[in-house]
Amino acid sequence: MHVTVKLFASFRAGRFDVETADYPDGTTVSDVADRLKLPQNELGIMMINNRHVKLDRMLADGDTVALFPLLGGG
């Protein structure tokens, strides 16, 4: 299935800003992080299609995943 992954802040270093790639059925947010070598303890904000999700959330074809480290400001 096709999944678009967006990375932000320090996660972009050595990776990409946005990439659409094939992922096997049953892939979770956690699997995406592993494939991109993003340490799970650094994951702060995770969204699929603009909604917050947890690590064990399963992806569907056409999903957009957004991964951020823990961030703040304002």
Binding site: F8, A9, G44, P69, L70, L71, G72, G73, G74
Partner: peptide, 16 residues
Amino acid sequence: HPVTGQGLPAYGTNVL
């Protein structure tokens, strides 16, 4: 803390 130790120093508040 990742926000006060990394995110804010590197990108400022506009990281939001």
